[in-house]
Design a protein around this nucleic acid. Structure first.
Length: 234
DNA sequence: AAATCCCGCAACCGCCAGGAC
DNA sequence: CGTCCTGGCGGTTGCGGGATT
């Protein structure tokens, strides 16, 4: 853990920080990250708080491996939109842009390597890794796109089967102590005690969670008409 | 058993767009 | 209209842990 001259902490988040952030996001919502960063007493930037929330703490997040269906969807969407990770992520409920980005990098690298192995001659014609990657992706796309589209609709069902994610422990801890502080919170009060972490007295209004979870993964209508509707028909 | 390599992922950085003033 | 602030996005880095030698 690094602390900068300005007293800003960097590096991995501690469990305590996570709890603290969860508390304050529950109070203020997923906005005003700079404000949350200040008020919470976390010595983090607003950006850092937002990132931590979006990529790790959000209750709607799915954990575990990318499924074959998701993989195909990623391939298809990437072929349409390129590296628009956040946009792609909106199509994959519970997945974050960061996760998809990471997945893409590692798996496409793997694919490129395998391809290189299987056809060593072709490597001489490729001047860069990125070109190889694109080639590999193109290959995947043609093989799988139509199948993927029919499978894409199944993903939602699969989501329901899933999967305990690590934050459950935290949610459980918090949920157990909810009622005591959910009503009558004032700024002064939570500042002093609501997030007096160990968070045993943390407030965690569950309806808000449901709201958040739904809203974050709500598909952006503007983006939608571009793609799936069309492709599903084909 | 130790050293090295490789992969997955969390986190940071820089840039940009949109909104408030 | 210009400036500042905030949040979102894509790219990149670095660490931890498992696999391999």
């Amino acid at each position: 853990m690094v602390v900068t001259k300005e007293g800003i902490r960097k590096g991995p988040w501690t469990e305590q920080e996570d709890l603290q952030l969860v508390c304050f996001v529950s109070l203020f919502g997923e906005r005003r990250w700079d404000f949350i960063a200040k008020v919470s007493g976390l010595k983090r930037t607003g950006k850092s708080c937002r990132l931590r929330w979006v990529n790790y703490l959000h209750p709607g997040l799915k954990r575990g491996r990318i499924t074959p269906q998701e993989e195909r969807l990623i391939l298809e969407l990437h072929s349409q939109w390129g590296n628009r990770w956040s946009r792609i992520a909106r199509r994959l409920p519970g997945r974050t842009d960061n996760e998809i980005k990471n997945y893409w990098r590692t798996h496409m690298r793997k694919m490129a390597q395998e391809r290189k192995k299987s056809s060593p001659l072709s490597s001489s014609t490729c001047s860069s890794e990125s070109e190889q990657l694109e080639e590999a992706v193109g290959m995947e796309k043609h093989e799988q796109s139509s199948y993927m589209m029919t499978r894409a609709l199944d993903i939602k069902e699969e989501d329901e089967v899933l999967k305990v994610y690590p934050m459950d422990q935290i949610w459980n801890e918090i949920a157990g102590t909810l009622e005591s502080t959910t009503s009558g919170l004032s700024f002064e009060r939570y500042g002093q005690e609501a997030c007096n972490i160990s968070c045993n007295s943390a407030s965690m209004p569950s309806p808000l969670w449901q709201n958040c979870a739904e809203s974050l993964w709500k598909i952006d209508d503007d983006d939608d008409d571009v793609d799936l509707g069309i492709d599903i028909e084909s």
